[in-house]
Simulated scan of single mutants.
Amino acid sequence: MRIDFTKMHGLGNDFVVLDARVQSLPPIDAAFATALADRHTGIGCDQLIVIEPSESGDFRMRIFNADGSEVEACGNATRAVGLLHGDSARIETLGGLISATPGESGIAVEMGKPRFDWDAIPLAYAMDTRTMPLAWEDLANPVAVNVGNPHVIFFVADPYAVDMARLGPLIETDSVFPERVNVNVAAVTARDAISLRVWERGAGLTRACGTGACATAVGAMTRGLVDRKVTVTLPGGPLQIEWREDGEIVMTGPATESFRGSFDPADYGLTAGSAD
């Protein structure tokens, strides 16, 4: 038995999407996710996305990083499944219900309200999350925010001068972040513009991170560095982020279908069956 997949990306952050609503899937676990994500022996992706039926939304989206860890939210993947769905949808995730609406300027995603309480990030102990009294070498006093998943944001003069390959995993796995953390380095270039690079928890340095763009924009707004609507430019391209007066974050940007195919689960030591 072969399983159909769709390969997609949002600004270069790429996904393999499986739809359990229309086909039987084997149990999806960390080993299966890492096998599919492997760029040498698998299909290759930053995240494996599994679409399932939902009792609280139009469908459920499960997100597995390339290292096999299942995570709460992914803004770029939300735009991708919104494009596949082709209409407005309420999507159940581990981080809560979010909505995606296709439009002329891309897919608009209501990402929910940011959380700044230290135990909502979560952090290992209480501290001011808007100016954390911590530093990793020259990266100091970041903002921490949860936008469905945990982020820490450093504002720097030049994000491309930061050695993210070395500092990203160091900060991601620091004991102050008991569930690990996504690491963002950003430069404010205008009242409505931010340049951003992201070390993504469980995936590494990425061309784009939707939740990172949301977290960084909100972090800059709480410090009064930018207005309530900004363009966040990542290596893969720009995203529009608005923090509405009702507290909801809205992210708008593109999503693209790359190709479709199928694979035999036996190639990964699995047998076809019902999803867990």
Results as ranks from 00 to 15, higher is better:
233 T>I: 08
247 G>C: 08
254 P>A: 09
256 T>Y: 14
238 P>V: 10
265 P>F: 04
252 T>Y: 01
264 D>C: 01
257 E>W: 08
245 E>H: 08
258 S>Y: 15
219 G>C: 06
226 V>T: 12
264 D>P: 02
241 I>F: 09
221 M>Y: 07
239 L>A: 08
260 R>W: 08
257 E>F: 09
244 R>G: 11
239 L>H: 11
253 G>R: 03
251 M>T: 07
243 W>L: 02
227 D>C: 00
222 T>V: 14
247 G>I: 08
232 V>N: 05
253 G>F: 02
269 G>T: 02
240 Q>R: 14
272 A>R: 15
260 R>T: 13
262 S>Y: 13
268 Y>W: 07
249 I>Q: 11
229 K>N: 04
219 G>N: 09
225 L>F: 12
228 R>V: 02
233 T>C: 00
258 S>T: 15
262 S>Q: 13
258 S>Q: 15
247 G>S: 11
224 G>R: 10
246 D>Y: 06
265 P>Y: 03
251 M>F: 01
234 L>T: 12
255 A>P: 00
252 T>N: 06
243 W>N: 03
269 G>W: 05
238 P>C: 09
253 G>W: 04
272 A>F: 13
226 V>D: 04
271 T>F: 07
238 P>R: 10
236 G>H: 07
258 S>W: 14
267 D>I: 07
237 G>E: 00
231 T>C: 03
254 P>K: 07
257 E>S: 14
239 L>T: 06
260 R>F: 06
232 V>A: 03
233 T>E: 05
224 G>T: 07
243 W>I: 02
266 A>M: 09
252 T>G: 02
220 A>I: 10
265 P>A: 02
224 G>I: 04
227 D>N: 08
257 E>V: 15
270 L>F: 11
256 T>S: 15
258 S>V: 15
231 T>K: 07
269 G>R: 03
272 A>T: 14
256 T>C: 14
268 Y>R: 00
263 F>S: 03
223 R>G: 03
269 G>F: 02
220 A>W: 12
239 L>G: 06
241 I>Y: 11
263 F>C: 03
239 L>F: 12
264 D>V: 00
234 L>A: 12
218 V>S: 11
251 M>C: 02
261 G>Y: 08
272 A>Y: 13
257 E>Y: 10
236 G>R: 05
272 A>L: 15
242 E>H: 15
238 P>A: 07
237 G>P: 01
260 R>N: 08
234 L>R: 05
249 I>S: 10
238 P>E: 09
222 T>P: 06
250 V>R: 12
267 D>V: 10
223 R>P: 04
222 T>E: 12
252 T>A: 02
220 A>G: 12
261 G>A: 05
269 G>P: 04
235 P>Q: 05
271 T>P: 07
266 A>N: 11
248 E>I: 14
228 R>G: 09
261 G>P: 05
257 E>N: 13
267 D>S: 14
220 A>V: 10
252 T>K: 08
223 R>V: 01
224 G>Q: 09
250 V>D: 02
226 V>L: 04
271 T>A: 11
225 L>R: 06
257 E>D: 10
241 I>Q: 12
227 D>K: 09
219 G>E: 08
245 E>D: 13
258 S>D: 15
220 A>K: 11
